[in-house]
């Protein structure tokens, strides 16, 4: 199966969901005209990143939100799947940094960010709750997995999604740019190139990385969105720092080809991984066999 993915490398207005929604709808219409079957937006695309005390004000109840309803409608009208980011409030009033996948007017999957960076220039753990479920999911375009920014810096996330059958890994990101010592690119952009290509190559799947651009209080989001094929080759790359809506074609047969050359997933030893992880887990937490250890 072949289809077209649009990378929506946008800048968001901090805390103004309605203005961001209007931008989403405009980009979706534009991408649909370019033949996109799926439009992927950055992390927290509906809200902006450095929310701090704005978190409860911008949070959406996914089932009741008119903003989400407008995006669901757009997906149906334009016949295009969507992955976008926002703050989700749960029934028990926890706030999550979530990625929402919509297809043909329905929410198919929600991924709650697992790893909330709370160090250096990041402070997510102060305002948000971490998700605790990681699942690949089926769509009309293939089996996908979603990660949000920091999630991808934990190789276990990519590993689990690959084992769960993901063919296309969507990573929604609000990655701040830093490091002006490279030849042409920011250090952070080079780092993302490394991990997106490594993930695609190690698990023979497509990686769709969408990072936002623009400044918030002096911090810059560096763009560099990309689709990487299962051989680790970029299919389409967005520029650093500039807004862009670019489309690239994905061919699931390429996954078959890559996995024929390099049957690494076939050879994966889940039993070995589980055995050793159970041992490490038991040792780390001093569990007896009675506690579920050995």
């Amino acid at each position: 199966m072949r289809f077209t993915i649009a990378l929506a490398q946008i800048r968001s207005v901090l805390g103004d969901v309605l203005r961001n929604l209007a931008q989403h709808l405009e980009v979706i219409a534009r991408a649909a005209k370019q033949g996109a079957d799926l439009v992927v937006f950055p992390e927290l695309s509906l809200t902006g990143y450095y929310l701090e005390d704005l978190v409860p004000d911008v949070a959406l109840e996914l089932a009741r939100s008119e903003v989400v309803a407008a995006l669901r409608e757009a997906s149906a009208t334009h016949h295009v799947d969507l992955a976008f980011g926002g703050v989700e409030v749960s029934e028990d009033f926890r706030f999550f940094n979530s990625a929402i996948y919509v297809s043909q007017g329905e929410i198919i999957h929600v991924h709650r960010k697992l790893y909330l960076p709370t160090y250096g220039m990041f402070d997510e753990g102060r305002y948000l709750a971490p998700g605790d479920i990681l699942r690949a999911f089926d769509t009309r375009l293939g089996r996908m997995g979603m990660l949000i920014c920091e999630d991808m810096w934990h190789p276990s996330s990519v590993y689990l999604l690959a084992q769960d059958g993901a063919q296309i890994l969507l990573c929604l990101s609000a990655g701040p740019g830093r490091g002006v010592r490279g030849e042409t690119k920011l250090g952070s952009v080079e780092a993302w190139e490394t991990i997106t290509r490594a993930a695609a190559q190690a698990y023979m799947l497509y990686v769709v990385y969408v990072n936002r651009v623009g400044f918030e209080d002096g911090a810059v989001f560096s763009g560099g969105s990309v689709i990487v094929d299962p051989f680790g080759r970029p299919v389409v790359s967005a520029p650093m720092l500039d807004e862009a809506v670019l489309v690239g074609e994905v061919d699931l047969q390429e996954i078959r080809r890559a996995r024929t050359f390099y049957p690494l997933l076939r050879d994966e030893r889940l039993d070995l991984v589980l055995r050793e992880l159970r041992r490490i887990y038991a040792q780390r937490y001093h569990l007896s066999p009675y506690d579920g250890g050995f």
Binding site: L14, Y50, E52, D217
Partner: peptide, 9 residues
């Protein structure tokens, strides 16, 4: 009372 200066912009 924590908001970025770019709140709303």
């Amino acid at each position: 009372f924590r908001y970025k200066r770019d709140w709303g912009s």
